[in-house]
């Protein structure tokens, strides 16, 4: 028996919108502490890791660990039918081949049930090692989205370099080059507007902008984004979900041949 009631249902809608274009289908792993998902995109260049802890739910019941394979496009279609203010409940029964999404309007005058077919997914689970990163940049998520979008109009790849001067995003394409430098800036009115650069060692890595732009679909989930880099490790682009968990995107670097 599985029953999860999320008062802020829009969060789940936003989570789906942020990952559904990257990953077609994935296993949702439910346990008593919350639910998680880990999946690579079809080309194995990017990986998404989602965690939503049980504390963030108004009601959370999961009698035993269970994994449900869902097509994210289909799940997104169903969640789009929920209003932004709706309470969303996910329900499942042991051994069933369906999952039910229940949407309740805030005034309880409209209640909808959507039952979705589950699927068997052969997914490989990867161990993500704990790492000490050379550099961690925390910045406003909207600024990061703007930079990725702007650079993608010039080139296909971005070089992200962190030095003690700041963080530099560079690209080059047929029409020319672009460099955007952000300096650490903590003298802001609101903490979420700050750019904070933690650098142990300088680092410079190259990534495909197409993927970075896909990750920025998670911007509505969080005012800030954290970018963690070490040479010879995938970059981690993390959007924290307040009080509940995170969506983390890992992107393999482009490397010199």
């Amino acid at each position: 028996m599985l029953e999860l009631r999320l008062v802020q249902g829009s969060l789940l809608k936003k989570v789906l919108e942020s990952i559904k274009d990257l990953v077609n289908d994935a296993n949702f792993d439910f346990s008593s502490s919350g639910f998680s998902l880990q999946s690579m995109d079809s080309s194995h260049v990017a990986l998404v890791a989602l965690l939503l802890k049980s504390e963030g739910f108004e009601h959370y019941r999961c009698d035993r660990n269970t994994s449900m394979g869902m097509n994210l496009g289909n799940m997104s279609k169903m969640l789009k039918c929920a209003g932004n203010d709706d309470i969303i409940t996910i329900k499942g029964d042991d051994g069933s081949d369906t999952v039910t999404f229940m949407f309740e309007s805030p005034t309880q005058d409209k209640i909808a049930d959507f039952e979705m077919k589950l699927m068997d997914i052969d997914s490989e689970h990867l161990g993500i090692p704990e790492a000490e990163y050379h550099a961690i940049v925390k910045m406003p998520s909207a600024e990061f989205a703007r930079i990725c979008k702007d650079l993608a109009s010039i080139g296909d790849t971005v070089v992200i370099s962190v030095t003690k001067e700041g963080v530099k995003f560079s690209t080059r394409g047929d029409i020319g080059t672009a460099n955007i430098v952000l300096r650490q800036n903590t003298t802001v009115d609101k903490p979420e507007d700050a750019t904070v650069i933690e650098m142990n060692e300088p680092v410079s890595m190259t990534f495909a902008l197409r993927y970075m732009n896909s990750f920025t679909k998670a911007t509505p989930l969080s005012n800030t984004v954290t970018i963690s880099m070490s040479p010879d490790l995938p970059v981690v682009v993390e959007y924290k979900i307040a009080e509940m968990g995170y969506v983390r995107f890992y992107l393999a670097p482009k490397m010199e041949e």
């Binding site: 690579m40 990986l47 990867l126 161990g127 495909a208 010879d232 490397m255």
Partner: peptide, 14 residues
Amino acid sequence: GSKQSTITKFFNKV
């Protein structure tokens, strides 16, 4: 030029 690496180059199956 540079070549796109994959996640599985860095993280192992568990």
